[in-house]
Amino acid sequence: MNKTDTVRLYGAGGHSQIIKLLLEQNGVSVNEIFDDNPSKSHPKFKNIIPGIKHHSSFPYEGAPFIVGIGDNMHRYKIAKVLTSGFAKAIHTTAVVDPSSILGDGSVVYAGAVIQPNTYIGKHVIINTLASVDHDNIINDFVHISPNVTLCGLVEIGEGSHIGAGAVVIPKVKIGKWCTIGAGAVIIKDIPNYAVVVGNPGKIIKMNYPESVLV
């Protein structure tokens, strides 16, 4: 994890709750939590600070942020607006090979394993018990859900969501802003913006996120 004693969180939902506990286990203090909808925050959180759209003079400068939001598009929009630095965090039970790279703003949850020579971009979530094998490329704003298995030499494009328990066989490339359904088995390359379900995985529709195409 980054060498910092204090981190600010943006987002006060379930993901942010887990990240807060993870940081505290690593001896990192979380002294400010921001959210665009404070009234809908997780019940464990108190004293939520209104987010950017409610704040006439948002405190951009200060301790680094982690954007604790599970939805990739929402995380993308917030991270693109923040101008501060970003921290990253790895749970104490996760295994990350020293040869692998973890980008700023990214978080590795409990029990996840990241094998050698893997590149993980910025603001990525590697969720609980996910297995990321050797020589993977996981680009910015991806979410690898719990119990996902990525075999060797897999590439995941920006913003894609890999659903819980999905399996991707070796050397497969998944495009950007794809949605891979829970339990899907991906045995061939997937184009940008595809929504895929089943075993073997089949494209059921295309989902074009206009806000990231401009």
Results as ranks from 00 to 15, higher is better:
Ala166Val: 14
His42Pro: 04
Pro116Phe: 03
Asn72Gln: 12
Gly68Tyr: 03
Ile48Cys: 14
Lys40Val: 06
Met73His: 15
Tyr76Trp: 14
Phe65Ser: 00
Lys176Ser: 02
Pro170Gln: 14
Thr128Arg: 07
Ser84Pro: 01
Ile204Leu: 09
Gly157Ile: 06
Tyr208Pro: 00
Asn139Pro: 08
Ile156Val: 15
Pro116Leu: 10
Pro170Met: 04
Lys40Trp: 04
Tyr193Ser: 10
Met73Trp: 15
Thr6Glu: 13
Gly11Asn: 08
Val142Asp: 02
Val28Glu: 11
Pro191Ala: 03
Asp97Val: 08
Thr179Arg: 05
Phe45Asp: 01
His143Glu: 08
Leu150Cys: 13
Ala12Pro: 03
Thr6Gly: 04
Ser211Val: 10
Ser100Met: 08
Pro43Leu: 10
Phe86Gln: 07
Phe141Gly: 04
Phe141Pro: 00
Ser160Val: 15
Ala12Trp: 02
Gly159Arg: 02
Phe58Ser: 07
Asn127Glu: 09
Gly159Ser: 07
Phe58Arg: 07
Pro38Lys: 14
Leu9Ala: 03
Asn26Leu: 07
Thr118His: 09
Val67Ser: 03
Val214Gln: 12
Leu9Thr: 03
Gly181Glu: 12
Ile52Gln: 11
Gln17Met: 14
Gly183Arg: 02
Ser145Cys: 05
His143Pro: 05
Asn72Ile: 13
Ser56Ile: 12
Ala130Cys: 12
Val108Pro: 00
Tyr193Ile: 03
Ala112Arg: 07
Ser160Arg: 15
Gly121Ile: 09
Leu9Glu: 05
Asp97His: 11
Pro209Ala: 01
Asp71Gln: 12
Gly183Asp: 02
Tyr208His: 09
Val7Glu: 07
Ile78Ser: 02
Ala87Gln: 04
Glu155His: 13
Gly111Phe: 03
Tyr193Ala: 02
Val113Leu: 15
Tyr76Ala: 06
Ser56Gln: 13
Val124Gly: 05
Gly181Gln: 13
Ile78Arg: 03
Ile101Glu: 12
Tyr208Met: 02
Ala130Asp: 07
Pro116Ala: 10
Ile120Gln: 09
